[in-house]
Design a protein around this nucleic acid. Structure first.
Lengths: 307, 307
DNA sequence: CTGAAAGCGCTTACAG
DNA sequence: CTGAAAGCGCTTACAG
């Protein structure tokens, strides 16, 4: 017995109708008046034969696959990626689409695009950075801006008024790091506080220098809001080397809490982001669906030893 | 001017031949005696029209895409993944294939498989865990086993003879963690040393308990070979809490060095793995190509403060 | 040495 | 209410 997969013709034969009718029933094609009895016969045949449409054939016919490609870019390793992807994947699947995440180079992507012919290509930095509500509305914004406000809010509540914003030196984080800087500066200004951008290189010597300069030029700075946990770790290492400790000399808070924050010595306070809802919304938008009422993205600072 | 993409018929028309001939030339179909002059005409037309074969149509005809799907599984976040993927991607691309890496759930994968119809599905744990040379040949093995031997060798060279093997408690690391345990036990036995497997939970209290038990039951143990950097970090945190320090009380070495090893307090010695060559070989094997002479996978311990 | 024809499995005007 | 036919863009027996 050869068990090659059932085709739409097999279903048609089993249901005593034409492939056309099967297609109409399966796709709920609008404008067709097919009686419930016929629909039922078709569905039974589908179930019985275990028929599932051939996606490649459909893609050839329709011009593209029911697939969405998500370009992770520099956000690749970020902690909230997992929840974002999970949310997006779930929502996409609910609407018959599958998600492909790409981490690779530009050349590799060209091949991939040709091979899978996705319906949509999403750029994570773009969607995460911009959100879909009007910009500059004074607070009820989404995506990264809201998260940045929560991170800063933690420091503000603790009484800090002069706050350094620690950005990575690695240029591959652009345009994300500039965006963050602007968001934090705006949020600080709204609260009557000061944000001081500083660049933190990964190498210990460079980091030490950046830290020393901050201390010298801005002696009133009492806290550091880091671009992400990794930058916070570099800052913490530089502070340790300089005989400084958190939060006494400088409070430090991370962003997009990863699994190392709690393990670090000292344990790092950081912003925990659940991006699942954000992923779901991005998926709906990509499919041209209504995104519904917006809820603030859930994020909160988990306070540990460094603030 | 409509710029819909060129098809094989357009190329055929431009070259004054049939689509059949174009296909034969483009695919170097064996057994066809096409004169160089004709081939040249075809290639010129291809270049002039910027023709590139429609991958979906080809996939429908051939039954599968020229695509390889790599299942990352629990190795998802591992540091050597990036180099492995880069090597695999490069080699695949050289042979007209593209790589898709999947991190998702089983349900999501089903959809994806249907949608892209990959030529091959690779399971990273399986290929990484087993390698392709005969097992148990006493050293000239590849993949994880060779790496484990290098990690242990570092401790052996430093004079350690009773070495704990710190494994994660998370069951999702199976069967990888059992495999590693066996590899390390075998390598230790060959060197006349002892390997002591211990399970390290992620929670501080559990980790502290595991550490205390090790100290009590195996007072002669002087070193710990960790399953990966994360386990090493948990161990280091537990040691710090217990007032122990590395390497004086216990030497600690990580595995598959990530970006946090150097930043940690204290800086962690760890095994650095370059898996690009491994990825290239796995790609060749997946395509049914000769894998060539094997070279030991490059890995080395970067020594820092903990050993 | 080269081409007409069939067919991969769908969807969708079009006709009745 | 339903179906025959065309066609998405390829590849590959088959025939000459």
């Amino acid at each position: 017995m050869t068990s090659s997969r059932a085709t739409i013709r097999d279903v048609a034969a089993a249901a005593g109708v034409s492939p056309t009718t099967v297609s109409f029933v399966l796709n709920d094609t609008p404008g067709q008046a097919i009686p419930e009895a016929t629909r039922h016969r078709v569905r039974s045949a589908v179930a019985q034969l275990g028929y599932t449409p051939h996606r490649i054939a459909r893609a050839l016919r329709e011009g593209s696959s029911r697939l969405v490609l998500l370009r992770a870019g520099p956000l690749r390793g970020s902690a909230s990626m997992a929840s974002l992807i999970a949310g997006m994947d779930e929502e996409l699947r609910r609407h018959g689409h599958a998600l492909i995440v790409t981490y690779g180079t530009v050349e590799a992507e060209r091949e991939l695009l040709e091979a899978v012919a996705p319906r949509t290509v999403l750029d994570l930095v773009r969607i995460y950075g911009s959100g879909d509500s009007p910009q500059g509305d004074g607070g009820d914004v989404d995506g990264l801006e809201a998260h940045a406000a929560v991170q800063l809010g933690h420091l503000l509540e603790l009484g800090h008024r002069s706050i350094a914003v620690a950005l990575p030196a690695d240029p591959s984080f652009e345009p994300l790091s500039s965006l963050r800087r602007r968001q934090l500066e705006a949020a600080a200004a709204r609260a009557g506080a000061t944000a001081i951008p500083i660049i933190i290189p990964r190498e210990p010597s460079g980091a030490a220098l950046a830290l020393a300069r901050l201390r010298a030029e801005h002696p009133r700075a009492t806290a550091i809001a880091a671009f992400n946990d990794d930058v916070a770790f570099v800052v913490l290492a530089a502070m340790h080397a300089a005989g400084l400790s958190a939060p006494d000399d400088l409070a430090v808070v991370g962003f997009d809490e990863g699994e190392h924050a709690a393990l670090w010595n000292p344990p790092l306070s950081s912003l925990r982001i659940d991006a699942a809802e954000f992923g779901r919304r991005a998926a709906r938008r990509a499919l041209g669906l209504d995104t519904g009422a917006w809820q603030r993205p859930p994020s909160q600072v988990v306070r540990r030893a460094t603030t």
